[in-house]
Design a binder for these strands. Sequence first.
DNA 1: CGGACTTTTGAAGTAATTCAAGGGGAGTGG
DNA 2: CCACTCCCCTTGAATTACTTCAAAAGTCCG
Lengths: 232, 232
Amino acid sequence: MANHSDLDILGRTELFHGMPSAMLVEIQAAGFRKKLASGEILFQQGDSASSLFVVIAGRLRATQTTLDGQQIIIRYLAPGETAGHTTLTRGVVHPSTVTAVDDSHLIGWSSDTIRKIMEQHSAVAMNALAVLAARYHEIQIRLLELSTEKVEQRIGHTVLRLANQAGRRTARGVEIAFPLSRQDLAEMAGTTLHTVSRILSRWEDLGIVDCGRRQVVLCKPHALMAISDEQA
Amino acid sequence: MANHSDLDILGRTELFHGMPSAMLVEIQAAGFRKKLASGEILFQQGDSASSLFVVIAGRLRATQTTLDGQQIIIRYLAPGETAGHTTLTRGVVHPSTVTAVDDSHLIGWSSDTIRKIMEQHSAVAMNALAVLAARYHEIQIRLLELSTEKVEQRIGHTVLRLANQAGRRTARGVEIAFPLSRQDLAEMAGTTLHTVSRILSRWEDLGIVDCGRRQVVLCKPHALMAISDEQA
DNA sequence: CGGACTTTTGAAGTAATTCAAGGGGAGTGG
DNA sequence: CCACTCCCCTTGAATTACTTCAAAAGTCCG
């Protein structure tokens, strides 16, 4: 039965949505399952890119590290999303490390397999193009933010994005549905944990957010949007 | 004869390399030519993405602008490269503006046409995936640089990248083969023209570069690499 | 209850921006 | 051909937003 529900989910992923179920069966049969406990690594920056994965359940984080050990968070991956698209290009290595931040369940395909699937089913290839284009667009926006905005606005946009992607409505407001430290936010917004802490404290005084240890709840999204879109 | 040489070039673009020439003829016939004088705009941020282009000759620049008019340069496009890949996703708008910085010659395909080509020829779709993956990787590196490096290193990496992409060997060193103002460099490195000017002056004193009005010649690449990779 | 993380907050320091003013090249038009 | 104008570039000085340094206070877990 696990198989059956996997199929349902597979049909709703960004990569395979819209595919007839016969094909999904075939696709699933060609892949392999992978389970990761929170904290385990799916693949590492510099590993040769040999498999492409789709997240079935859980949550993962893609990071990039400099030679001297500084890290940035590229993005968080939710169920339905794709990890390791570098695999689609021959002979390259993963540019980022992907780590589970929650117990996670994925399905993977070897480079050859996924390429064969795409060659036979152009709809999958077209989906992949759309996925990559969306990611590209996303990161382009972050580049723009990082280049033109002040820290407070950047942190604001980061929180708003996370609330959108991984928000859970609660009595207090929209809660970001996974543990998120000040350091994590800093690595996404391109700043330090100190600055994040200070700014979050200020917002807390204004009643805009409500945060705890590795937790952020967004109480007044509109107020935060106002701050984030404010022109210098 | 122009047709013939276009074909040659088309077969060496990132999108169509490796395709048999019969197919190239077909692909070219399905597209349309577009000429732009220096300064003319190919498409603008926010325009609906209706065509995809390949640069045959010339040079273009992709930029993104904020609501309050601040601009960043996403990248420069050389012959063989692809513009407007957003067109591959249905119902979206161009995230950036593309402008010719030199008289340029392109071939374009409507959204429907290029999708049809990709559906029929999976090799083109796979090329497109490789192109997008490469762009993504590229921009990811810039995000890392922007987040972790100091201005001098960022400018250094920017100049090194440009020298690589568009360098022309001359007696003085490697000359960046298109007009590049301090403002342009600033918009690529995420800083101000003042800072770029100061740092370029310093490098000039050290004999690392030699620059003029809208011109940069890299004389000592290794020295610049040393500066750029220096750890804080 | 000890110990390891995570967070907070002040104070000092600094890299880079902003402000301000002037200089120089390239092209235009008289 | 010279003068004028428009850009582009340079360089000091003042300002500031943010980081770095430092220390202490919470908070969770075994």
